[in-house]
């Protein structure tokens, strides 16, 4: 009995914390559900051209405002008689792309700045004051301003949303870096003449990875909704191209006549956000090498 458990334990040990984390992730029910939801959205996004029964911009003025279940239009049609299901699938595609792109911008720029601010006092003074200034502006105003300057397009909206989220990433990463750089292994590295770049990226970064991942999963839904607002203002995606945000905004006008047109994109946003949050939460737990 003792022997077998001991050997089993030995077999399981000596994997990197990342791999062990993934194994743990598979055991977390909520995380698996979140992962499946995400997988579903990714399939919808990637497979949209093949799955969608109609073209997303194909209008049919004969049949506007159909309820779900109509033959040929399983989720009904919108005010112009376009198929809601097809628009939804393409909408997921754009929204997911916007979410990922803006996270890439926010994390890509915010992480190094945050690490530096948390590690060096001088950098902290500069970076933190700048983020303070940036945070003084409401998130949307920045995004609107940036999108207006660069002109309306999907990529520009995503970049604007990403930039608007940089201060948040900087804050979170800085706090974590501050905590980690007080730990003895960083002190030891400094006493060993290890270069700063190495300390930042080999010591601080992996240890800060869990909070970065979690923050990223929070930013994606924020970006998806932010895009809806930008598009509503005419600064995001241009019609007739669909996005979940635009569909929601369009449906608002006819909410009393045809509430279904608002329900589907709203529900999809909820599912995506939930998926990202649940998966992110589980990922954080799984990646923490200290908690077992």
């Amino acid at each position: 009995m003792y022997q077998t458990t001991a050997t089993a334990a030995a077999a399981e040990t000596s994997r990197s914390p990342f791999i062990r984390g993934l194994q743990q992730l598979a055991r977390n029910k909520l995380g698996v559900i979140g992962g499946l939801l995400l997988l579903l959205t990714v399939i919808a996004a990637v497979g949209a051209p093949w799955i969608a029964p109609h073209h997303f911009a194909a209008v049919n003025f004969q049949i506007p405002f159909q309820t779900p279940g109509t033959a040929g239009y399983p989720l009904g049609t919108d005010d112009l008689g376009r198929d809601v299901l097809s628009r939804l699938l393409y909408g997921v595609r754009t929204s997911l792309w916007i979410g990922l792109l803006s996270v890439a911008v926010a994390v890509g720029v915010g992480t190094p700045l945050g690490l530096l601010a948390g590690y060096s006092r001088v950098a902290d003074a500069v970076v933190s004051r700048l983020t303070d200034v940036a945070l003084a502006f409401p998130f949307l105003i920045i995004a609107v301003g940036l999108a207006a300057i660069r002109g309306p397009s999907l990529e520009n909206a995503a970049i604007a949303l990403g930039i608007a989220n940089i201060p948040i990433i900087v804050r979170v990463v800085r706090g974590e870096a501050l905590r980690i750089s007080g730990l003895e292994f960083v002190q030891a590295a400094r006493a060993m003449n290890i270069s700063q770049a190495r300390i930042l990226f080999q010591h601080l970064l992996p240890n800060a990875s869990s909070v970065i991942i979690v923050q990223a999963t929070v930013i994606i839904p924020v970006a998806i909704i932010g895009e809806a607002m930008l598009s509503f203002l005419g600064l995001g995606i241009q019609p007739p191209e669909p996005s979940l945000g635009i569909m929601l905004a369009d449906a608002q006008e006819y909410i009393y006549r045809s509430p279904w047109a608002a329900v589907w994109p709203g529900l999809t946003i909820i599912v995506m956000c939930l998926g990202f949050n649940m998966f992110g939460d589980a990922l954080r737990d799984a990646l923490d090498p200290n908690a077992r």
Partner: peptide
């Protein structure tokens, strides 16, 4: 370059990753 540290807390003195 001449000195090397050994710290108190064996739990925080090694990078867990």
């Amino acid at each position: 370059s001449l000195t090397q540290p050994v710290f108190q807390d064996p739990f925080s003195s090694l990078n867990p990753y």
